[in-house]
Simulated assay, not measured.
Amino acid sequence: MNKSLAAAVLATLSLAASTAAVAQETPWLVRVRAVHIDPADKSDPVGGAGASDRLTVSSKTIPEFDVSYFFTPNLAAELILTYPQKHDVFLDGGKIGTFKHLPPTLLAQYHFVLDAPIKPYIGAGVNYTTMSKVDLLAGKAGLEHDSFGFALQAGVDYAIDKKWSLNIDVKKVQIRSDVFIGGAKASAVKVDPLLVGVGVGYRF
């Protein structure tokens, strides 16, 4: 009887320990990053004539917040968020106005599970960007309000402990818009920025 009781106690303790270990590995990971946006600055000739790439968009560094959910140790989904970001627009180097854009991005990720603190990953997904508060050429020019495109990602997490990690992340995002002057299409801009970020992550 004592042996049976001892075996039952050991089995219960083992199950509790296993449950606690699983509880520590929750599927949620959040990160905060500082991200530098470097636009590709490609554009069609203005008015269909002359040189290309005359329209450019300013680069800047922004805060970024993202939430990841791990379906398995390897497979995860990441939602990337920020608040509307203001950019300057230039024509032949001269400022012609500003606009704001909000670019939430959803990515499917593959994480390489290594027996080391360094955890690399790759990702691919979609970006939706909405343009707002467009003020170009004193209101004479405008942009499309919406842009849909692809996004590619590569990054590395460095585990500090079981919950905290440091992160380096690189993304290439497809963001494009037609430019209108007086209601007629005057050009098309490929912003297509390269985003390089560093940050910190927390695993719940």
Results as ranks from 00 to 15, higher is better:
residue 160 I to Q: 04
residue 187 S to V: 03
residue 64 E to A: 14
residue 62 I to E: 12
residue 64 E to S: 13
residue 165 S to K: 09
residue 24 Q to I: 04
residue 55 L to H: 00
residue 60 K to H: 09
residue 105 T to K: 01
residue 194 L to I: 03
residue 53 D to V: 04
residue 85 Q to L: 11
residue 27 P to K: 08
residue 163 K to Y: 10
residue 118 I to R: 01
residue 23 A to K: 13
residue 103 P to M: 05
residue 88 D to A: 12
residue 44 D to H: 07
residue 180 F to Q: 13
residue 59 S to C: 02
residue 40 A to T: 11
residue 82 T to S: 15
residue 6 A to Q: 12
residue 14 S to H: 06
residue 99 F to T: 04
residue 77 A to R: 01
residue 30 V to H: 00
residue 119 K to T: 06
residue 7 A to Q: 09
residue 67 V to Y: 03
residue 201 G to E: 03
residue 39 P to G: 03
residue 111 H to T: 08
residue 153 Q to M: 10
residue 129 T to G: 14
residue 41 D to R: 09
residue 53 D to R: 07
residue 30 V to L: 10
residue 29 L to T: 10
residue 100 K to R: 15
residue 88 D to Q: 09
residue 70 F to Y: 15
residue 13 L to H: 13
residue 158 Y to R: 03
residue 190 K to W: 06
residue 7 A to S: 10
residue 166 L to F: 12
residue 73 P to M: 08
residue 30 V to E: 01
residue 184 A to H: 08
residue 106 L to C: 03
residue 64 E to M: 14
residue 7 A to G: 00
residue 97 G to L: 13
residue 123 G to F: 13
residue 71 F to H: 02
residue 180 F to Y: 15
residue 36 H to R: 15
residue 201 G to D: 02
residue 8 A to P: 00
residue 102 L to K: 04
residue 116 A to T: 11
residue 20 A to L: 11
residue 92 D to L: 09
residue 157 D to Y: 11
residue 30 V to M: 10
residue 31 R to S: 11
